Amino acid sequence: MNLKDHIRGVPDFPKPGILFYDISTLLRNADAWQVAMGRLASVVRAYQPDVLAGVESRGFLLAAPLALKLGCGFVMLRKRGKLPGATIGLDYDLEYGTDRIEIQADAVKPGQRVVVVDDLLATGGTMSAGISLLKHAQADVVAAIALIELTFLQGRGRLDVPFEALVQYDQ
C-alpha cells in the first residue's frame, strides 16, 4: 500500500504558501492506519524501546497505540502548562520565535530506552528539543521516528539520534 495515497495535501494552511500534509485522511481509513502502524512497529521494534515519547499533539495519535502494540510505556511531550504535577521543560527556538516543551518529572527513569514519535518532521526544532529534554531527564534516547518527513527542510540534520520516516516529501 502506498501511504501517500491516504495523506491529503491542504494548500495554504495554516497560512498562505504552506502545503499542510493532513494525516486525518489516513487515520480514518482503517486499512491504511493498520498498515502504517504495522510499518512503524517494525521500525521501532528494532530499537528495543522501553518507552515511546509522543510529541504534542498528533504524535500522541501514533505513539500511544504503537506503544500498546509493542508493549512499551507511553509518555507525552507537551507544551507549557499542559501536564499536571512536577514537570521539567526546555525552551527552544522556532523559525518565528521560541516555544517550550515539557515532560512530567517522573515520566522516565534514568537509562530507559526511549524512541521519540511524531507525525511529521519538518525543520526538526520540536523533535530536537524533545530529544534534548529526554536526555536531560537521563533517558537513553535511541531513535526518533515520524510518519512523514519533509526532506527539503533538512530537519533530520538537527537530530543527534537515528531517524526514520515512512513517507518522504521532497517539496
Rank of each mutant, 00 (worst) to 15 (best):
R158D: 01
V75H: 07
T98I: 08
D50V: 04
L68M: 13
T151Q: 00
L66R: 11
D5L: 11
L90S: 02
G89S: 15
Q171D: 12
P84Q: 13
Q138E: 06
M1F: 05
V117N: 00
L121H: 06
K15Q: 09
Y21L: 14
V142D: 04
L134V: 02
F13N: 08
A165S: 13
Y21F: 14
P49Y: 08
V116L: 06
Y92I: 01
L62C: 10
L26C: 11
T87E: 02
A64S: 15
A122E: 09
K135V: 03
R113A: 07
K69I: 04
A30G: 13
D22V: 06
V117P: 04
D118V: 12
L40R: 09
P11N: 07
V114H: 01
G97E: 05
A143W: 04
P162I: 03
A36C: 15
G38L: 13
V75L: 11
Y92R: 06
Y92M: 14
L70Y: 08
A63S: 11
R8T: 14
Q171F: 13
V55Q: 05
K79W: 12
T151D: 06
A53C: 12
K109P: 05
F20N: 06
A107T: 08
V115C: 14
G38N: 15
M1W: 01
D99V: 01
V108A: 13
I101F: 05
D50Y: 07
E164M: 06
V142W: 02
P49K: 06
G9T: 14
D170K: 07
L61V: 14
A32E: 09
S24F: 13
G124Q: 02
Q104F: 10
R58V: 05
H6R: 09
P49A: 05
P162A: 02
A146I: 00
Y21V: 01
L121Y: 07
G155I: 08
R80W: 01
D106T: 14
G9Y: 02
G155Q: 12
M127K: 10
P162M: 04
D140F: 01
I148W: 03
V117D: 02
Y21G: 00
M127I: 10
A165L: 01
A107D: 11
A107C: 06
A46W: 02
I23M: 14
I103S: 06
D99L: 02
K109S: 15
I103M: 11
L27N: 12
